[in-house]
């Protein structure tokens, strides 16, 4: 099915199809990810974006950042809209064109969830990209079902008490041909996954960890370093699921304790009383260990 040469897939793309001038905070992981995705997909692409930071900071009239067609409808229905775009292209016998539905974690895991599930189930040729910043950031950092255990949000002031929903696996269980996770620090890998997905016919799901300096409580310069720690601790496994089989799992070169990751972020500060970790840190370590075992990181 995949026909492009591996050289093409691994080539890094910088076309600035998602241009300067957007209103994201300095160091925003989501803004970086959105550009990497748009540049990898290329000019022949339609971006359908759900409500959320990305949509807000990239689309104020009259100077949107998108240099490709961009469509925004509602928070809950972006997959339905993308499905419609695909159906229209089919009916008009136009295309081929890359259709990428995009949303934040809230728009993906909670509010838009049923429309994504429907799109997957109906088999539309659409790539869904989730920019996971682990809370509803645009409305002021409320908890979503992607908020990790222990993290503080405005609606979980004592720290979140539930574990993060595992959407990549839920997506894969819809029987779709391609699911992948990625982080913004490894742009080569991220862009390869976008290109690979776009070569496959049918619904695809790409889950990108996108640090949010404002919501996570770190300075903008740490966005890349934090992604690396998320991988090195085992808290964010990077892998692909091709036709139902887990593949290309990124092995951890040098394992790090979760503390290294937590200590950099204000949303976990309450887990360290006078510098000493409280018992929740052990549970977060346990989550990381389970990931490491489950995906053989």
């Amino acid at each position: 099915m995949i026909t492009a040469s591996s050289e093409d897939l691994y080539k890094v793309e910088k076309k600035d199809l998602f241009a300067s001038g957007h209103r994201a905070c300095g160091g925003c992981g989501q803004a970086l990810a959105a550009r990497l995705v748009a540049d990898a997909a290329g000019e022949n692409t339609i971006a359908c974006v759900a409500t959320g930071c990305l949509e807000i900071f990239s689309s104020p009239y009259p100077d949107p950042s998108w240099r490709i067609p961009f469509l925004h409808s509602l928070f809950e229905n972006i997959s339905a809209v993308a499905s419609g775009v695909e159906a229209a292209y089919k009916a008009l016998k136009k295309g081929p064109v890359n259709i990428i539905a995009q949303g934040g974690d809230g728009g993906t895991a909670d509010i838009g969830f049923q429309s994504i599930s429907g799109m997957f189930e109906r088999g539309h040729n659409v790539l869904y990209v989730c920019y996971d910043n682990e809370a509803y950031m645009n409305t002021g950092v409320q908890r979503s079902s992607f908020t990790p255990f222990g993290a503080k949000t405005t609606t979980t002031p004592m720290g979140n008490t539930t574990r993060k929903k595992n959407l990549p696996l839920i997506a894969a269980d819809h029987g779709i041909p391609y699911v992948a996770t990625a982080t913004v620090d490894d742009f080569r890998d991220l862009q390869r996954k976008v290109k690979t997905a776009l070569l496959i016919n049918g619904p695809k799901y790409l889950h990108i960890l996108a640090p949010c300096p404002l919501g996570w409580g770190h300075t903008g310069d740490l966005t890349v370093a934090i992604c690396r720690l998320a991988k090195a601790t085992g808290l964010f496994p990077v892998y692909e699921i091709i036709n139902g089989k887990v593949a290309n799992v990124l092995k951890i070169q040098e394992k790090k304790p979760v503390e290294d990751y937590l200590r950099l972020q204000g949303r976990y500060r309450h887990l360290f009383k006078k510098g000493v970790p409280v018992k929740e840190v052990a549970e977060i370590q346990e989550i990381a260990n389970q990931n490491i075992e489950r995906f053989n990181l």
Binding site: G21, H22, R23, P60, P62, D63, S65, W66, P69, K94
Partner: peptide, 19 residues
């Protein structure tokens, strides 16, 4: 082109450097 509501070719981006 199809799908475009504003002509992005003439957009003058907002200068975020002032932040």
């Amino acid at each position: 082109p199809l799908g475009l509501a504003v002509d992005l070719r003439n957009v003058v981006p907002y200068k975020t450097g002032s932040w």
